[in-house]
Amino acid sequence: MIQTVVYIALICVAVAMITLLYRVIKGPTLPDRIVALDALGVNIVAMVALVCIALDTNAFLEVILLFGILAFIGTVAFSKYLEKGVIIENDRNS
């Protein structure tokens, strides 16, 4: 029973990711794409959690945590690039 539910959920998340990919490719603006990438990251976290249930293991819980951080860092890096054109600034006072 639980397997079937997880399986259906996995398909749903995968469909969601494909639609997000459409947004990544289509745009039309760069912020659209970045937000879509961020949402893709959240979906990946969901998928990892579902796979953990399906495989009946807790080996991937670190992946979930790590991805939570990385998706955030990635989105921030892109955002900073959008705002200033630079990710790491040498001048700390600006």
Binding site: G27, L30, R33, L40, V48, V51, F60, G74, F78
Partner: peptide
């Protein structure tokens, strides 16, 4: 920049495959 975002997407999905 779109290419970079797409490359990142591919990389993340690959990690999902590893999972």
């Amino acid at each position: 920049i779109t290419s970079i975002i797409l490359t990142g997407t591919i990389g993340y999905i690959v990690s999902l495959f590893f999972v």
